[in-house]
């Protein structure tokens, strides 16, 4: 079975963000990009599934040349091949979803792993969108996953608990932390990955229908008050919370 894993290449979470002069995107100078943390979990689950039931793992990314770094990392972890769809990702998730869905169909993959969220636009709906486009089943926020024939049993995280889900292939599963512990790439894996070629495809990017008017920094909070340096400040703190903030 062909297992596709979608990986995104995103600014490192520790990066300071500044807005570019167009006021619609971020200024990318000096920003370090990494494999999206949730996608590492997705890759691990794809590899584990292949180890259990056989098949091949194809890493898929939409973006520019620098996305190859994250694809390379997926190969080093153990993916069999990698495809780069060349184009800029849009804040309109449907644009990316259309491109990923088209490639998943042409790969004839019935099981797709993604991360639950990209830590760039933080949308966390890509899996659901692609599943709807393809009429595949969806398990989002998965914290456990198992497959038997075409039957899937999984758990997903919801507010305040977990849901146990039964569904079947074809399906898309989005990975939440706790699903597994991603492996480190072995030295051998890294060497093999260097020799593999990443297939590059020029694609049609559909039009964005959600358009950005402006991107800005959040309003700075006014400097707070240090009420004191030990337990003697507690009554004053409680007073402020009750009378000034009126919050308790």
């Amino acid at each position: 079975m062909k297992i596709v894993v979608c990986v995104n290449h995103v600014p490192d979470t520790a990066t300071k963000i500044s807005i570019s002069s167009d006021q619609k995107t971020i200024d990318t100078t000096g920003v370090t990009y990494v494999l999206n943390p949730y996608d590492e979990i997705a890759i691990e689950e794809a590899l584990k599934t292949k180890e259990a039931i056989g098949g091949e793992v194809i890493a898929l990314s939409l973006g520019n040349d620098s996305n190859k770094e994250s694809l390379r990392k997926a190969l080093a972890m153990g993916a069999d091949s990698a495809v780069l769809l060349k184009g800029n990702s849009s804040l309109d998730s449907i644009v990316t979803a259309n491109a990923l869905a088209t490639e998943i169909i042409s790969q004839d993959s019935k099981l797709v792993f993604m991360g639950k969220q990209s830590v760039d636009y933080d949308s966390s709906i890509m899996g659901q969108l692609v599943a709807s486009l393809l009429d595949y089943n969806i398990v989002s926020n998965a914290t456990s996953f198992s497959i038997d024939g075409d039957k899937i049993i999984a758990e997903r995280e919801i507010e305040g608990g977990k849901e146990s889900i039964e569904t079947s292939l074809p399906a898309i599963v989005t990975a939440q932390k706790g699903l597994n512990e991603p492996r480190y790439a072995s030295l051998k894996g890294i060497m093999t990955a260097k020799r593999k070629t990443i297939e590059e495809k020029d694609i049609e990017i559909s039009e964005s229908h959600v358009v950005v008017n402006i991107m800005k920094k959040p309003e700075e909070k006014a400097a707070g008050k240090i009420v004191g340096e030990d337990a003697s400040a507690v009554p004053e703190l409680v007073h402020l919370l009750k009378e000034e903030a009126k919050i308790i």
Partner: peptide, 12 residues
């Protein structure tokens, strides 16, 4: 977006 390090204003 970017974990709250920026805010975008958008329209469909």
């Amino acid at each position: 977006v970017y974990a709250g390090k920026a805010i975008v204003e958008v329209e469909s």
